[in-house]
Amino acid sequence: MSTTETYSHIQEIITKQFADKVFNFQETYGMLSFEAPKELNLEVLGFLTNHPELGFAFMTDLCAVHFPDKKGAELQVVYHMHNLEKNVRIRFKVSTAIEDPTVASAAILYPTANWMERETYDFFGVIFTGHPNLKRILNVDEMTYFPLRKEFPLEDQTRIDKDDEMFGRGGNLLTQSLQN
């Protein structure tokens, strides 16, 4: 079977189970991706893993993306699942509002999700309910914000108000020459 056929077959199986609850099926750059409401995330993951024809049992990756413009669905959690036997990959997404960033944790089902969810919490503030040990992992525990959210832009590299002469920006010499 060609990949496109495989993907339409997979899509059929998934829509048969979840009807119109799953949406936005897309095939981008050789990977099928779809979305579901966040309440269904464990149900969908369990179905992807346990269905005899799908068998996406290996969790390759879990991360989040922040879309500040999508009101009510600002944070998106992305799962990459892999069927190692048939060598097919699939991408599955759930979205959550930033005011209530809770998503059910998959760490009990997939031990590998444990740290990946901690990392996602650490950087995006997605609260994975039911996680055995949801605390920061790469950043310091005292941190009060979630740095990968888009409201924290990196410093503008062209700013000149800093006295940072040794690093080639601002500094007394440059400010003086600008004033003259």
């Binding site: 981008t28 750059y29 990977m31 991706s33 390759t60 991360c63 993306v65 992305v78 990459h80 990959r89």
Partner: peptide
């Protein structure tokens, strides 16, 4: 677009999940 590509790194599958919104830099790179 969004693309996932992986290579067999020295210690396992090294994956790049690259989301581009068409701007000069990645919108998100994991």
């Amino acid at each position: 677009g969004e693309v996932y590509h992986s290579v067999e790194g020295g210690n396992g599958e090294l994956g790049f999940y690259f989301i581009s919104d068409g701007g000069r830099t990645p919108y998100r790179l994991h």
